[in-house]
Amino acid sequence: MSIEGYGVATLKNFVGRELGVSNWVIVDQARIDAFAECTGDKQWIHVDVERATRESPYGGTIAHGYLTLSLLATLAIEVGLIPADARAGLNYGLDKVRFMAPVKAGARVRSRVVLLEVEEKQGGRIIVKTANELQVEGEDKPALVAETLAMLIA
């Protein structure tokens, strides 16, 4: 998405403003299984559908917290966090992360992104901090809230 008037030179004008809300993304069992395979986290509550259906308090499998966290970067890019006139945007870190509610297999999630801070560094680097709320379709409570940092290269 493109945010009208949003660019490297105007970043500070957007502090405190919502940059946007991403499209919905499905967190299906295939995605959960792929994440488990690549991270080695094969805890039954994520990958054993039959057992999770029987024993989990959620009635089935749930996504890894870190899987849901990993979606934030892509969803922020989709919203338009990296201005079109920036040469690059890189993950820089996290300040705060709280996992608030599980994401059940098959759920759809989206991210709401608010620009919190802009800090200019030497060499055309800019650190931007955003508040991210990963919402689960049909749920009142977000799956997670996080303050993320990105480094923009002007």
Rank of each mutant, 00 (worst) to 15 (best):
M1I: 01
I3S: 02
G5R: 04
G5S: 03
T10N: 12
V15T: 13
G16N: 07
R17T: 07
V25C: 06
Q29N: 13
D33A: 15
T39N: 06
D41Y: 07
K42H: 10
K42E: 06
Q43M: 05
W44A: 14
H46P: 13
V49Q: 13
E55D: 15
E55M: 10
E55H: 09
S56W: 09
P57I: 06
P57Y: 07
Y58M: 12
G59V: 11
G60A: 12
I62E: 11
G65K: 03
G65Q: 02
G65A: 01
L67T: 07
L67I: 08
T68H: 07
L69A: 06
S70T: 05
L72T: 11
A73K: 06
T74G: 13
L75I: 05
I77A: 04
I77E: 09
G80R: 08
I82H: 00
A84P: 09
A84L: 08
A84K: 04
D85I: 00
L90S: 08
N91G: 09
N91C: 04
D95P: 06
K104G: 15
K104A: 14
G106M: 13
V109S: 11
V113R: 00
L115F: 12
L115V: 10
E117M: 11
V118A: 15
E119Y: 12
G123W: 08
G123E: 11
R125E: 15
I127S: 11
K129C: 00
A131T: 01
N132T: 00
L134K: 03
L134A: 04
V136R: 04
E139M: 04
P142W: 01
P142L: 01
A143F: 02
A143I: 02
L144I: 02
V145Q: 02
A146L: 01
T148Q: 06
T148W: 06
I153M: 12
